[in-house]
Amino acid sequence: MMNDTSQTFTKVKARHILVADEALCNSLKAQINSFEDFDRLAREYSTCPSAKVGGDLGIFGKGVMVPEFDEVVFSAPLNEVQGPVKTQFGYHLIWITNRK
């Protein structure tokens, strides 16, 4: 059986929390024990417009997001909080919910 990192995926569904500094990002990550925690913290702290929907970015393909973000969402395990991931926009926590 192949694991996620050895397959080629073209679409991903993910949520994220975007904040300005790494310390806050790490603090939020430590508070996340469930999907409900992630949703609540995204709504409260994320500076991205997606905060209104719990950080939901919907389904997107490769190359839509910045390279650092793409690298994580197309290779990291599903349903585990990834990050902090630094991009030009700030620091992200990422929850990948599906790939195909």
Rank of each mutant, 00 (worst) to 15 (best):
N3Y: 09
N3M: 03
D4R: 14
T5D: 08
S6L: 01
Q7D: 09
Q7A: 15
F9W: 15
T10G: 15
K11A: 07
K11W: 12
K13C: 13
A14E: 04
I17F: 08
A20H: 10
A20M: 05
D21T: 10
D21W: 09
L24G: 07
N26V: 05
S27Q: 13
S27F: 04
K29C: 00
A30M: 04
A30C: 04
I32N: 00
S34C: 06
F35I: 05
E36S: 05
F38W: 06
F38G: 00
F38I: 02
R40Y: 12
R40S: 11
R40K: 15
L41N: 13
L41Q: 11
R43E: 13
E44C: 06
Y45R: 14
T47Q: 15
C48W: 06
C48K: 02
P49K: 11
P49H: 05
A51G: 12
K52T: 10
D56M: 00
G58Q: 10
F60L: 13
F60H: 11
F60Q: 07
F60D: 06
K62E: 10
M65H: 02
V66P: 09
V66R: 13
V66M: 05
F69L: 00
D70W: 01
E71K: 12
V72M: 06
V72T: 14
V73F: 01
F74L: 09
A76K: 14
L78I: 07
E80V: 06
P84M: 12
P84Q: 08
V85L: 02
V85K: 00
V85M: 03
K86D: 04
Q88Y: 01
Q88P: 00
F89S: 15
F89M: 14
Y91T: 10
H92M: 06
L93D: 01
I94C: 03
I96T: 11
I96C: 12
T97R: 07
N98H: 11
R99D: 03
